[in-house]
Design a protein around this nucleic acid. Structure first.
Lengths: 214, 214, 214, 214
DNA sequence: CATGAATGAGTGTTCATTCAT
DNA sequence: GATGAATGAACACTCATTCAT
């Protein structure tokens, strides 16, 4: 798969437990609870049960740390979705299942998903988030390309279609993520179903001519 | 149309020009250049050529100011797109044109569009952003409903479809931000065309069955 | 009587109504409601129904204005108490009545009394407050001196005794002024009676020898 | 004794000296020099030779810091006076000595005493100041009650009498602040003697009837 | 003269980062 | 290596005062 985790992590010294994942987990928990804003270095250190100074032994700055949290969490999601994408079945089935899986998981960890999708502050973190979008898009594109190859889907700009699917999923998730009304959770399933149906039509539907104005 | 601008602004000012739009413009320019983060009160005041105190004569707090920037900018875009939506033509044509118009305008001010779509931090600003998404979605939904009514589009969850279109457009705008390559601007038009085609297929395409797993 | 109002008020121009007392009254009302802190120039101007600029035509600064409010209000109280002091009756009776009158009036306008007695911030306002204390003390001293002269009271440092009376009254007023508990108002009368009794004993009581340690 | 210092100060500090008393002392010095008004966080930090941030490690806010200064300083004075109150001797002797001690100490640090007695602005600080008054009053009341019990003093409202003594002492300290003449300091001793004599007469003097008017 | 919009120095507070122990 | 006390730049916001209209 496309690896989001490319930071060398050279500064890690062996001897004793590697606190890297511990810190990452503590930070993710905090972010999942109350967003990036509340994930201050002091809070993260406390949550990880270590001193602030130790934090800086594993991460050069808060920004780096947040970036890594985003990358780490995103990679996991991308991996899961990618796993679905490589199963047996028609491209259509796999596309639906991949989208469904992504949405289901995101809805389970609402606050974290929201942070990963819509909250970022620092440019570096934002960049990591976009990389996440692209990695996810790449998974969908692979399925679409296969579908086009085997005649399931009509000829199309598969990269654009994949981006659209990502956009549909995020928009469909972000909106309810912030509104208290949708917290009921029940209407979620039908909402997700509608979104995926739209995506499938977008990918497999009969071509509609759109001619951009001069 | 759905009015996003509901702040009363009761204070009357008699002498001197109303600095409200001046400040809004200065703030928008700053945000367009480097995002909300850099739009500090000091910077905004300087950009507007006024004193900090004057800022607070027009806006009770930084948050309110940012919210108003989002609302103001968003309302303008929504109005333009809504105007397109009410012209003559088939639902399909109008949907395409509305989407095209939105994308074209947004691409002109990329950084600002991005801020409006993905950057907000404060809950109040976030809320304003979501209102923007929903207002835009409502415009598209109106077109879709008309299309369904006159038989152009098949039966569907028009609200979900409209949300998807918004998601496609936003993702299509945000996505290129991550790839330096696409900054050339030239391939933009074809990219937008592909996205809109996907949306039209999603709305008008033949129904594809997606059955969510148990 | 001793005049507390010595500021020249040269800057007042005739023609039209003299807004001096109007402003003073507005300021006093505000102070009586929520203390000096809330008596901002904007608030005072608004309460007086004039513009801020006009305020500065009558008072050179906020400090001067507050000083004048203190002086003005204090003078009125001193005048009333002094009136009691010059009535017929024994020195003892007049002392009691003067103290009683002062206390009764102060308790009627609780918040204002508190501001005048314990809230001041700026050195200049503080000075005005002290002048108030001294003016009040002078009234009591006059009575005490008369009492000593006609044999009602034993020989004593009348200035110190007068200061003590002022201290007793203020302490007796300030304490309950800030405690919500005493807002019942009923136990006030007996409390005041006890205080005045203490003062009368202090003035008329049999001499007790206090020899300061070396 | 009645403890004015109830703040928990739970934060533990291991390395370096506990800067709590250092900050308190720096703040008290500043207040003693020019009152609460000039005791800004920046000034306090500078006076204590530490950074502003460090201030906030020890005190959550400026208000809390000022409150603690008042409590700390007041508690010390109350403790000293209370110590005198529990020595051997007649109630009269102890009352005189307690008052004398309080006055002598207060006169040594005039400006600070004044701030503690008459300057506070913020409600929280004011509350701390009142607690100080009441604590001091309680000490005097104890002596008075003992004097009444052993027949030294006539029956009386001991709480009111104690408040009066506090009022006399405070007024006696604040009053001279207004007259430049008395700043010489020499006449201070006789002034204090006169005040204490008044108080002793007020407590031990023959009852004088005061009947409040209807 | 009256007006009130404009001013901007000043203040309390936060939090990522450093470095002596 | 781990610690966490110390740091201080940065920021939002207030309000007495001024001066062009």
């Amino acid at each position: 798969m496309h690896d989001l985790l490319t930071s060398p992590r050279v500064r890690l010294r062996r001897r004793g437990a590697d606190k890297h994942p511990l810190i990452l987990k503590a930070a993710r928990t905090l972010i999942a609870q109350s967003g990036f804003r509340e994930a201050q270095m002091t809070a993260i250190a406390e949550a990880a049960g270590i001193a602030i100074g130790t934090l800086y032994r594993y991460f050069p700055s808060r920004t780096e740390l947040l970036v890594e949290v985003v990358k780490f969490t995103a990679q996991r999601e991308v991996d899961v979705v990618a796993g679905i994408a490589m199963r047996d079945g028609t491209a259509c089935e796999r596309l639906g299942m991949a989208a469904w899986t992504f949405a289901s998981r995101a809805l389970r960890g609402r606050r974290l998903a929201h942070a990963l999708v819509a909250e970022p502050v620092e440019p570096e973190v934002e960049a990591a988030r976009l990389t996440y979008h692209r990695a996810l898009s790449r998974v969908f594109r692979t399925i679409i390309d296969q579908g086009i190859a085997n005649g399931e889907f009509p000829e199309q700009d598969s990269a654009a279609s994949a981006d659209c699917i990502v956009g549909c999923l995020f928009e469909g998730l972000v909106a309810p993520l912030s509104s208290e009304a949708a917290l009921a959770g029940v209407p979620m399933q039908s909402q997700v179903t509608s979104i995926i149906s739209f995506c499938l039509r977008g990918v497999a539907g009969t071509a509609v001519a759109f001619i951009p104005p001069a």
